[in-house]
Design a protein around this nucleic acid. Structure first.
Lengths: 348, 348
DNA sequence: GTGAAAGCGCTAACAA
DNA sequence: TTGTTAGCGCTTTCAC
């Protein structure tokens, strides 16, 4: 018996078999089912028994076996989250999903989409683990590709590249956000406002549309100018170089997102262009970058916590309340004014 | 029977029960055990049977149940990965872990450490899912806290804040990396080289030490100057402001990491200081940021793919080869020279 | 090449 | 308040 004792010593002789509910039951002298009941916090066990069960669990170093729970339970109460780690704003949303899910008594299971692992495999993994719904952040997938997934579990697309039927969508009113940016700039006296767009990236089409509409509404139709981009820093930098090479220099730029605004801003700084003295810049996403003291980017805020909350709620409505119709959830954005935008200089 | 047919239609009438191996077995007319054998690619089934099993699986839309596999298998072959998404370099490592694990026939399970979810809970989740080892990226945990985990499963700490016994460590020779930076700068003629450190963050102490040693080796002991930081952009920006306010302006700066170098660089640009004309800057990590055209940061490279590979290998050695002694794996860094460093100007 | 049977650790329905 | 029972979907061992 001494051997058994010593084998318990962790990390030296090798690891002991991990204790189960039966081990606890044996120790306390009750049935295994009763132990299960105690852990699930269900009524039907005396206070005394509960105490002793927890005590024994502690002594044995018990940890519930998720695999067994998952297998036996009727519901997994797991939400699968598909994400890339490329965009800071996506990271914010992932972080916000944890408390949002917890509030509804769901667990979050992460699955990263990386170069060596496409969306298809990542989804397979989540479904294999019995996730009841899939939340996809900023997917570039085509609608029909997503529809396949939607056939197996409810899908909530957060800021998808394209809208698709058969699933819920959570997104911000991108057009409205850009309109706020244009309003802000015109109030500062700007008229030559260009837009660096995001090509076919999530929300880009609507932002582009919002820019055009807002410009026209302010009677600035002839100032409409869109420079193609793709939400990357480099596309912002490229746009800056293009603008610098041009004779017609704008007094303000609305970038498709904060990353491209960053490339734009720094490239201007390098060229000796002062921001906002020579040119005003607006970003989009209000990511961590925008708030940095040396960036100070005026940006359109999409509240990650709110997005997360609504996405979880959409999934829960399908799962717990039996909703089967699609929801298109649109959040209102808010402009966060920082130091990258300023009054139009009279000599400009 | 027509009802059953229609219930199969996905996403309309509600979801059908997901097919199991038994369903496949029934359809093909073999035993469930044989189906399992086929999926596990084990010998003992005829080619004909294999074909028919895969065919039936396809028709039924079968997907293996991870929970059941996990419960029944003797080994889970899962590696749990603890990470934050705060540092770009950590993200690189996470991405690199997928192919590295796959090569050894292991699966990666992610668990994020976020504000609302500390290391303790994240680890619990991984162990609950039967992960056989835990890889922790850039942990700030204290050694004794990690030791608790190490008692339950092998732990590989990647770039930990502090070394700890009872687990493997994968890290770069930080001192050597900084030495390369100093060598590079002195070759360019610099003498007044300051270091912005990373306080108590992972690797910071060794980088600090490396700086001091290298400076002394070049006979620049009297030029040693360390400005406290914490690896954040803001600490870099603060250091830049401090330096600008000082009468003794250095000709080169070695930042503790790329993030602080970024804050430093941009703050200088804003102040009209030219990089590298007025001052040279070196970062650390060679993160995505460093390679951007408008940043062009000379930086010390820690190869994420190599780190990932070695970390997985360390875990596998314990798991499959029974190693029980600790390994301290130190990688050689490499200096990547970009545009942020240049020859000392004669008038400086 | 194939099948029968046992059981992983737990939940859930029912019985006592 | 407690115990019994029957699986969840799969892997694994042994027998045929």
């Amino acid at each position: 018996m001494r051997d058994a004792e010593e084998a318990v010593q962790p990390g030296i002789t090798g690891r002991q078999k991990r204790p189960t509910m039966s081990d606890i039951a044996a120790r306390v002298g009750v049935s295994q089912a009763l132990v299960s009941l105690v852990f699930r916090n269900q009524p039907g066990a005396s206070v005394r028994t509960r105490e002793r069960v927890f005590e024994a669990a502690e002594e044995l170093g018990y940890r519930p076996d998720t695999a067994a729970q998952l297998l036996r339970r009727t519901r997994s109460r797991q939400l699968g989250v598909l994400f890339t780690m490329r965009h800071p704003h996506d990271v914010d949303i992932v972080e916000a999903l944890y408390p949002a899910a917890e509030k509804q008594d769901y667990h979050v299971v992460l699955s990263a989409m990386v170069a060596t692992r496409d969306e298809r495999r990542a989804v397979e993994e989540l479904l294999g683990l019995r996730c009841e719904a899939i939340l996809i952040i900023g997917t570039e997938s085509t609608p029909d590709r997503l529809a396949v997934v939607a056939g197996e579990a409810p899908v909530v697309a957060i800021n998808p590249r394209k809208r698709a039927s058969g699933m819920d969508v959570v997104r911000t009113a991108d057009a409205k956000g850009v309109r706020q940016a244009v309003d802000h700039l015109t109030e500062l006296g700007h008229r030559a406002i260009v837009h660096i767009d995001g090509g076919s990236m999530p929300g880009a089409a609507e932002r582009r549309r919002g820019y055009r509409t807002a410009m026209r509404r302010h009677g600035l139709a002839e100032h409409i100018r869109i420079i193609p981009g793709d939400y990357t820093e480099e596309s912002g930098a490229r746009a800056a170089r293009d603008l610098l090479a041009c004779d017609t220099f704008p007094t303000a730029v609305i970038a498709g997102n904060d990353r491209s605004a960053h490339g734009l801003l720094t490239t201007f700084l390098r060229a000796g262009v002062r921001v906002p003295d020579d040119i005003s810049i607006v970003g989009y996403d209000d990511s961590r970058l925008a708030g940095l003291s040396f960036i100070g980017l005026t940006s359109v805020r999409q509240d990650a916590a709110e997005v997360a909350e609504l996405a979880v709620q959409a999934a829960v409505e399908r799962l717990d309340n039996g909703r089967t119709t699609d929801r298109d959830i649109v959040l209102d954005p808010a402009l966060v004014v920082r130091e990258s935008t300023g009054q139009l200089r009279s000599d400009a």
